[in-house]
Amino acid sequence: MTIKPIKALSDNYIWIIEEGKEAVVVDPGEAKDVLDYLKEQQLDLAAILLTHNHDDHIGGVEEILEHYPKIAVYGPEETKPLADHILQEGNTFELMGQGVQVFKTAGHTLGHISFLMGNQLFCGDALFSAGCGRVFTGDYQAQYEALQKFKGLNDEVKVYAAHEYTQTNLRFAQSMEPSNKEITEALNQVQELRAEEVPTLPSTIKQEKKINLFLKAETLEDFTTLRKARDAF
């Protein structure tokens, strides 16, 4: 299995999961580059996975379905009517011979979910490298609980977040913990990657436990204070 990013909008990644000649698309905010890639690589689209209902994650679905009308679209309740396979916490299913687990990871939206496919985590806007999504719902408890689920995953799990926010997140983290050598080292590495326009993703759960202040927050109060500070950064 290989996983490749397609850049979309200003800073989104649409992830293409490939196994042989089959492909699954995660959070297609745009359609054109996805359709072009599938055609160029002569891939058969097997399914679309949606983490939540924001337009930069679902904006390309209708156009893709015009070309692939029979494929399954998996997502939470909030992605209806685009999704025809509605998922919730604890659901499991199989794609391309791989088992997929579903976690509710709300906070950013009311029904946000994440997908764990083997050791590959597709977490939309619930978890970023060195960060997490804005809590648009105001439900900081839900977002904090989502982070605890991520923290409980194996260190080897790769984190395929949906945005290239790593550099800004690490700049914020460094402002909060200027003497943290792991954060400073990570920021230097990320700056080098971005100078070459190389994606900073995927990360790993092991790496996030070191550099992600939100994941390291020990209480809901600590997390809420940190998230509000990041909003104002």
Rank of each mutant, 00 (worst) to 15 (best):
E177Q: 15
I3W: 09
G75W: 01
I183P: 00
N91K: 10
A31P: 02
F233H: 08
T79Y: 00
T219N: 09
K4T: 15
E185Y: 02
I14D: 08
N119E: 15
L49A: 11
K104A: 14
S129L: 11
H52S: 02
E192T: 13
Q42D: 15
T137Q: 02
Q120R: 15
E66Q: 15
L9Q: 12
D27C: 12
V34P: 08
M1D: 09
A217I: 05
T105M: 14
H163D: 10
N119C: 03
K181Y: 04
I16E: 12
T137R: 02
Y74N: 06
E78I: 00
S114R: 01
K32L: 13
I205L: 11
A162H: 12
T92C: 11
G29M: 08
H112I: 01
V73E: 07
Q207V: 11
D33Q: 13
E62W: 04
F150M: 11
F150N: 04
T105I: 10
G75M: 04
I211V: 14
S203R: 09
G124P: 08
S179H: 10
N119G: 05
A8K: 11
L65I: 04
S10H: 13
T109M: 00
L49P: 11
A232Q: 15
A130Q: 06
F233G: 02
A229M: 13
K104F: 04
D56K: 04
I64V: 09
H52W: 00
L170T: 09
G124H: 05
N119Y: 07
E89C: 02
D231A: 09
Q41M: 12
L35V: 11
I183L: 00
V135H: 03
I14V: 15
Y13E: 08
G131D: 06
V34D: 10
G90F: 03
A186L: 00
K151V: 00
T184C: 07
R227W: 05
T109R: 00
I16A: 11
Y74I: 11
L116T: 00
N154R: 12
F128R: 07
M96I: 03
E18I: 15
Q101M: 13
A126Q: 10
V100N: 10
I58F: 01
H163C: 10
E192W: 09
Q101W: 09
K70H: 13
P69W: 05
R194F: 13
G118C: 07
A162G: 14
C132R: 09
D84E: 10
E145S: 06
N119W: 01
H163P: 01
L201G: 05
I16H: 10
G29P: 05
M117E: 03
V26F: 14
Q98G: 00
P69G: 06
V198F: 07
K32I: 11
L45Q: 11
F223N: 03
T219E: 10
E177Y: 02
V159Q: 03
A217L: 05
H52G: 01
T109S: 04
E164Y: 04
I17K: 12
K158G: 01
I3M: 13
A229N: 12
